[in-house]
Design a binder for these strands. Structure first.
Length: 420
DNA sequence: TCTGGGGTCCTAGGACCC
DNA sequence: TCTGGGGTCCTAGGACCC
């Protein structure tokens, strides 16, 4: 019998900020997305003010001022570093770990005899060592572990930060599932929930009892699998390897919207560097390079330019990929509009070391491969962007807005917090 | 001449998640 | 003054071909 736990940081970004600002304990905090666009995290006190998550910040800026909410821009360097520390601590407690996102991981607890004690010890350990509060949900499938995690935070009576379905009898489990809206289930979003509700399937219990074949026919194999998982049938293995992406996207909105080709070229060069680094990290090579530039989707007569540039053979070389991306950019660039966002997509990714034999293609240049290795090593050691493409350096006008960013307490010496 | 079934490949858009 | 994230995967539907 498999047993999974889903552990996540409560209001993770807000909690990270608060670790270094103990004066904000018990006070409302929100954290904004890249470019200070949307609200992506809020402390419990801020959530109590009923501000809309994932909504545009400007709509609630007044409310924040009025209630003295402290507002932070995203500081992904800080959150990434805190995430690594949290994951390392959690890994000490379980034989198998799959890092699912920046603030959550699945743990394999199969065979553990006293899960509740282990779960509470994990929580205390993370809290004591890095100051982040976490919640633990336990169940026989990933879907049920996710749902248990939700229960551990939100369902009155069971919201002590740890919840395990095995504490309940079959009848009690179903009673609880009957209280949970179908939209709370992992993989059931807004649209799917609305369609299910139209068929009178509005709770987790009703989806659990739905006919899997009918669900498959009317929706997808994915949702059929969710039904099985709700019934305690484990369909998703723990994947402790870094997942191999089938496509890699790097894109950003602009802090100040440019019209100028050179600014777009600098941004595209930067994004292709980021994407290529990720590509090399998974030891892949891409054969298609997509480039996208667009104006704001909220204006009339918007423009979205998108093209795909094929390479003669798959590559992981930043310079080759950048050449293709810039050629694509020249194709789709139109003089005139103010651009809001630019990005690249690497597609048709294959493992680098089993590249297809192509009689006519030149073999990869070993000097270029060493150059890329050296570049990655320097950027790892001395910080991202230490070595970059010339086109990136032409202008930094494209960088995003981050008006309220906190210091990099854990990764920059000059930002180190000194406790007096 | 025109129609058309069925497969493959490709892509834009949808849905979801954090 | 004006403001609206980023990333991944899936799939329906179009284009093309036999």
């Amino acid at each position: 019998m498999t047993t999974y736990a889903l552990v996540d940081g409560n209001n993770f970004y807000a909690s990270c900020e608060r670790v270094f600002r103990p004066d904000l304990e018990g006070r409302p905090i929100v954290v904004l997305s890249n470019n200070d666009g949307c609200v992506v995290a809020a402390s419990a006190e801020a959530k109590a003010l009923n501000l809309k998550m994932f909504g545009p910040f400007f709509e609630i800026a007044g409310l924040c001022r009025q209630h003295g909410v402290t507002v932070f821009s995203s500081n992904y360097t800080l959150y990434g570093d805190m995430s690594r520390r949290m994951m390392a601590i959690l890994a000490e407690h379980a034989p198998g770990q799959e890092v699912y996102s920046i603030d959550e991981c699945f743990l394999d607890l199969s065979g553990v005899s006293d899960i509740e004690t282990l779960a509470r010890r994990m929580r205390d350990d993370v809290r004591r060592r890095i100051g982040i509060p976490v919640s633990v949900g336990v169940g026989p499938s990933k879907t049920l572990a996710k749902l248990a995690n939700h229960v551990s935070k939100r369902v009155p009576g069971w919201d002590s930060g740890v919840f395990d379905w095995s504490w309940l009898s079959e009848a009690e489990r179903d009673a609880l599932l009957g209280q949970l809206a179908v939209g709370k289930i992992w993989g059931v979003g807004r649209k799917l929930a609305a369609q299910l509700e139209k068929m009178e399937i509005d709770t987790a219990l009703k989806l659990k009892r739905a006919d899997p074949r009918a669900i498959r026919r009317q929706f997808s194999v994915m949702l059929e699998r969710t039904v099985a998982e709700l019934n305690g049938v484990n369909c998703l293995e723990l994947d402790d390897a870094e997942p191999e992406r089938q496509q890699i996207i790097a894109s950003r909105s602009f802090g100040e919207k440019p019209r100028d080709f050179n600014v777009l070229a600098a941004a595209i060069s930067h994004h292709i560097s980021t994407a290529a680094e990720k590509l090399r990290k998974q030891r892949g090579a891409a054969r298609l390079v997509g480039v996208s530039i667009r104006t704001s989707p909220f204006i009339d007569d918007g423009y979205h330019g998108y093209t795909v540039v094929p390479l003669a053979q798959a590559s992981d070389d930043t310079l080759t990929l950048a050449q293709a991306a810039l050629a694509g950019l020249r194709d789709i660039y139109r003089r005139g509009p103010l651009y809001q966002k630019a990005g690249v997509i690497l597609m048709e990714i294959s493992p680098r070391d089993v590249s297809q034999a192509d009689l006519f293609a030149a073999p990869p240049d070993p000097r270029r491969q060493r150059l890329m290795q050296t570049m990655d090593a320097i950027n790892r050691e001395f910080g991202r962007g230490r070595v970059k493409l010339a086109a990136e350096a032409l202008t930094n006008n494209w960088e995003m807005r981050q008006d309220q960013r906190s210091p990099c307490y854990t990764t920059r010496l000059q930002d180190l917090l000194i406790v007096k």
